[in-house]
Design a protein around this nucleic acid. Structure first.
Lengths: 340, 340
DNA sequence: AACAAAAATGCAAACGTTTTCATTTTGGTA
DNA sequence: TACCAAAATGAAAACGTTTGCATTTTTGTT
């Protein structure tokens, strides 16, 4: 249980520079209000001593820790990773830091994480998705900590959100498939439990089919864990039997699995089968053939989320507009073609 | 500049429970030393008030913040993401949190990040790779903050390391290719600048070739940015000209790009071309054909790193053994086959 | 050169915990 | 029942900053 070596503090710097601690503090926070000569003495003293300010001590007083929280279902997923990186980079540029944690689609765990982050007095927090444990939301509200919901978009959401309308994305990808003339379509989606993004996408797809007067038989609605191996198995079974002419996947990862499965049994994409995903992370564009999908701009979400949170924290105001829609975009690539 | 609503503090809890703040503090840190009845009163008071402890205030005194830092080149990379997730999850289970940041292979930025993390008084930090700016290392050493180097392994390293021997990995994958009888082999590696993992892998491969008395012409040593699009272009050019019989890629991502490139111009893998990567993240196993590669156990590295750091922080001792080798493993899959 | 206004600095009291040391309470024993 | 050691609790001094207010220094004006 080693105690840190007596690292120099602000008063050590002050003594060496021949000024008061208050002035040193001001130098670090608002350099402009200390005069040139004084500033130089402080700089020299800090440099000589190797002083590194203690933000925790400062935060005790100001109540701003300069770190923000980000909770995601999982870090190990290309499209979240892209968003996380952007969120982190934006904060870094703003001299802030990021505490991140994953809950693996377990909302109870999410609540525990929120508590843990609150113990660290984060200045704001971004939660993935719209649905959350009221207990967690209460803790945040009680302390007046800025919260936003990212990734999904819903005008009715109680939290400010920064994300794309996943239901609309589902509709759009379904539209694409229908416009290509496909009628026998299968769906492979992840479990919607604790995953409002997946739920909304699926509901968008179904809505669109219904609007076209098409009824998807239950046997065409497949569910699958978030694991390429399992996806391949599910897809194999589907393709070896009475194969549909197109498959709509709940996300790009699943689409990749389907494409591999098709390839491994010699089903040609897009000639014999059209495949689409939703998400469009880095890899999908370069797939062979390229994956037709809906591009959800992960980077933009990350950046906007960081900026929104910071602004909420500094102004104490809700963002305007309250819900920030992030536009998505259909990317038509080689994995789809007209039926027949 | 909103100030947080007067959230209840430890003294509010103490008053409500009719005990002193000291006792409440003890309750939260070492519950066993407060008597049953007292404990219950404290529990009730804390619950009623919705008290959430302030670890920053505590850390001011104990000098342990309960958060650890992790610096990676990039978060948005499947294999790092896997490690990050494991590191984070392990800390979470130990009631600690993780501050993470990426430097994009820019060592100067890494130093700035180290400083920023030190300002938050992290209890320890993991840096990716062996090579680091002495300035950063100095700051850490001066403050006696536990540091480890992860991902790579080198018996000569000055920092404790938790990782696989990337040079040996390079040798092993080269051995595999040579044993399959390939003689005309091309290499596609990322820029080794500020990336000791890439440098060591490449040097391992070259070492092995030299040992076999084979001289790789410079034209067979290709360099390529970490971007699937560029990889595809580079590979296209290579395959359309005087194509080698095998390509060794510096990592799995590059290997994926090569496989897509081959596929797009009808070069059959493994019949006309063998391809190998190094890394083996989630996706590679399920590729079609599966990618032959060296499995670097990212999860294990993340977990071991977290545990090592925590133990260093608690005991104040260097880990034993000082360097912790993480075993890697050749995974032979469908992307390679004997020459001819 | 003298003065007022403005700018820079210093003093000291917070901020919310933890911990040492002293004091009280408890439980067991004679 | 009285006493003692051990266990539980309390009082108060840290921990390293920031900031309101008071004071000093500078700057600009006449």
């Amino acid at each position: 249980m080693r105690s840190r070596k007596g690292a120099p503090g602000i008063v050590d710097v002050a003594n060496r520079a021949g000024v008061s601690p208050a002035t040193v503090s001001r130098y670090f926070n608002i350099p402009d209000i200390v005069r040139g000569p004084t500033r130089q003495r402080i700089e020299a003293a800090a440099r000589d001593l190797g002083y590194i300010r203690n933000r925790m001590a400062g935060a005790l007083h100001t109540r701003f820790s300069g770190t923000f929280g980000l909770i995601v279902p999982t870090i190990d997923n290309a499209i979240f990773a892209e968003m996380i990186e952007a969120f982190s980079a934006r904060l870094q540029a703003l001299d802030r830091t990021m505490l991140i944690a994953a809950h693996g689609y377990n909302l109870e765990l999410e609540t525990a994480i929120v508590r843990s982050l609150l113990e660290r007095r984060i200045d704001g927090i971004a939660l993935t998705g719209i649905d959350h444990d009221p207990v967690a939301l209460n803790m945040l509200a009680q302390r007046d900590v800025p919260v936003i919901s990212i990734w999904n978009h819903d005008e009715a959401a109680e939290l400010p959100c920064v994300g794309a309308d996943n239901e609309a994305a589902g509709e759009q990808i379904a539209t694409h498939i229908l416009e290509l003339g496909h009628r026998d379509v299968a769906l492979i989606f992840p479990d919607a439990n604790g995953n409002d993004r997946a739920r909304d996408r699926l509901s968008g797809v179904l809505k669109r089919f219904k609007a076209s007067g098409l009824q998807l038989p239950e046997s065409r609605k497949l569910q699958c864990a978030y694991d390429v191996g399992e996806v391949k198995r599910v897809a194999h079974r589907l393709l070896k039997g009475d194969a549909p002419s197109a498959i709509i996947c709940g996300n790009d990862i699943i689409a990749h699995g389907v494409m591999f499965a098709a390839q491994s049994i010699g089903v040609e994409i897009p000639n014999q089968l059209s495949v689409v995903g939703i998400g469009d992370f880095g890899g999908s564009e370069y797939f062979e053939p390229g994956l037709t999908t809906i591009r959800l701009p992960a980077k933009r979400i990350g950046i906007t989320a960081a900026e929104t949170l910071l602004s909420m924290s500094e102004t104490g105001q809700m963002p305007n507009p309250f819900h920030q829609p992030i536009e998505f975009q259909l990317k038509v690539r080689g994995s789809t073609k007209p039926y027949m």
